[in-house]
Design a protein around this nucleic acid. Structure first.
Lengths: 347, 347
DNA sequence: CTGAAAGCGCTTACAG
DNA sequence: CTGAAAGCGCTTACAG
């Protein structure tokens, strides 16, 4: 592969000059520029980004560590992150933690070794020593979706509280009183927040959320299936189940179908995270939609601000309830409001 | 960030010795090793992969350029590629072409600039000059799923012919005679092969596939919707529609539902590429399943073989029909065979 | 077993 | 406007 030296030789100039035309440095003569460009074309020269990175100490690369690529929510997030980054001249390397803290650390380590300019992470757990250390060492970092309390890192996320309140209003309006939740891991913020918000909203309606109706999942389909089976085995099974993410809802659907039961007549179902398939499931699933694209964009913006020395902003965007038919056919007594404007707060 | 010099100073040895212990070189005294390791721990030193890559001329990184990450088939493929690569000590950088040749080239270029050790690609089109040039220049490369005819690059893919024959038998057995297809882009191998295989299988049953029943899609949901609307507007709409991928099937489902029609009573639907959601759609969708995980693994194996100087193998794995309820309720007269063993052929 | 030195391919003050 | 030279952080023959 041709190097800058070959180009310099071909063009009859020094490597410094070649470098200057490649980097659009103003002080290059038209003549030199022309000859360099010609040499580049002849040799099919492409600058070696590895060498450039070593020299400039920047890779123009962002790392994105997410908990599960197979989750359509994260797939979409990853896609929008890549788009936004590309628009700003950055590439992104995705690390898939698969909800495993050890794998998460593996990716963080690899990314750090590659000297990415900044790290976007949706942590799987409460914060490994590695993550703490990376932040302390000054690696530009921002959390997306999930975050680690106590760490001084900007977070870009959706607030599901009001949408969850809308959901509870919807469920209670339909007459459901025995309501259960398939929670995510308590070690994740989204895992614990969604249960709490659900419990609080339920309390406003005087509906309790007993332990038996609080199943512990891990955000993956299999756990949704397992927890739902537990619910169905109860002497008094719940009338409605709220899955804290879309994959666990899929698992719940599996378990319900396996028993020969039907949604919503035998049991109601709702999910956090809306995805295109929910329109087509049997029945269409009522879900809470996050503004995923906007989250990705805002996260990149915050990270790049941080990298380029501007003060990064934490951003919280509202999620909203999308009512479909999986909770029952009644008329919704508490229609979701139109999305409220973006809230921003300096981190 | 601490460099190898700092470690050397801290340990009281030369950088050469530090490098040796880091790379498990045999000729290092126990004493030196101990001191270096201690220094590494004290400083929290992590070797700079950028510098190492520049020096060794290898990045231990694979590039994967796929046509659409949001397509669950490709998401799963990407995941299995990353897993297999990690097991062999490689990282992977994913480029999402979004079915756009220009974006595909952008990613190939970026990946090449980063000096990835090898490239896995599922081409969006018939082959850009850049791709041709990269292969000619000796970049280790293998095609996954889709390939470019005429290029001397190993191909790892699934053969859907026999599954498509099974599908046609299923459709005809159910009495469908007016059968349509939503094809993928003719410039992609999977786009053209699936129509041809479908047409040929239909011919064996004496069923024609007229132009009016051959819609041109682009593997994305919106095109499935648009083509299906065209079918439904026909004076004599088809009785069954075969979507050449899962996203176009989603779009078809949208269009059918928008007309207030029902699957399968009003119109039958089948898809290429099986995904978890198809079990839960209304109705569950009959689909052709590819051995996605195995494809990812085989592709990585082939590429790494090529990189490390071993002869790479092209691999073709069989796809299989998974009958569900979207084509009708009759008994399937032609049950799919159990998967046949892996076929391998040297490229 | 160990270290001094060269060199990977760039960029960028510095001098002219 | 241009070039010679230093240096980014490593690895690895070479000599001892």
């Amino acid at each position: 592969m041709a190097s800058i030296k070959d180009v310099a030789a071909e063009a009859g100039v020094s490597v410094a000059t070649v470098s200057r035309v490649l980097n659009d440095h103003p002080s290059v003569s038209d003549d030199a520029r022309t000859r360099v460009l010609a040499a580049v074309a002849v040799l099919g020269y492409r600058p070696n980004a590895v060498a450039r990175s070593l020299r400039t100490d920047q890779t123009r690369t962002l790392g994105l560590v997410i908990s599960d690529v197979m989750n359509p929510y994260f797939t979409e997030l990853a896609r929008s992150v890549e788009e936004a980054a590309r628009a700003l001249g950055y590439s992104v390397i995705i690390g898939n933690a698969d909800e495993r803290p050890d794998l998460q650390d593996h990716h963080v380590r690899t990314l750090l070794d590659r000297r990415i300019d900044g790290l976007l992470v949706s942590p799987t757990d409460g914060g490994s020593p590695l993550m703490l250390e990376a932040a302390r060492a000054g690696t530009p970092m921002v959390f997306v979706d999930r975050w680690i309390p106590g760490m001084d890192v900007p977070v870009v996320r959706a607030d599901g509280r009001s949408a969850i309140r809308d959901l509870v209003a919807h469920l209670c309006g339909l007459g459901h009183r025995r309501v259960a939740i398939i929670a995510g891991p308590a070690a994740t913020t989204t895992g614990s927040e969604r249960v709490e918000a659900f419990r609080e909203a339920l309390a406003e309606y005087g509906v309790p959320l007993p332990d038996a109706y609080t199943g512990q999942g891990d955000f993956q389909a299999e756990s949704g299936r397992r927890v739902t089976e537990g619910f169905l085995d109860l002497p008094e099974p719940p009338e409605a189940v709220f899955a804290a993410d879309n994959l666990m809802a899929l698992g719940a659907l599996d378990a319900i179908r396996a028993r020969g039961l039907r949604v919503p007549c035998d049991i109601a179902l709702a999910a956090f995270d809306d995805i295109p398939w929910f329109v087509h499931t049997d029945p269409p699933v009522t879900a809470i939609a996050q503004p995923t694209r906007e989250l990705g964009r805002a996260a990149v913006r915050a990270l790049v601000d941080r990298i380029e020395g501007r003060p990064p902003q934490s951003v919280t965007l509202p999620a909203r309830l999308v009512v479909r038919r999986s909770c029952g056919e009644g008329r919704d007594p508490h229609p979701p409001q139109s999305p409220t404007p973006v809230q921003r707060s300096t981190s």
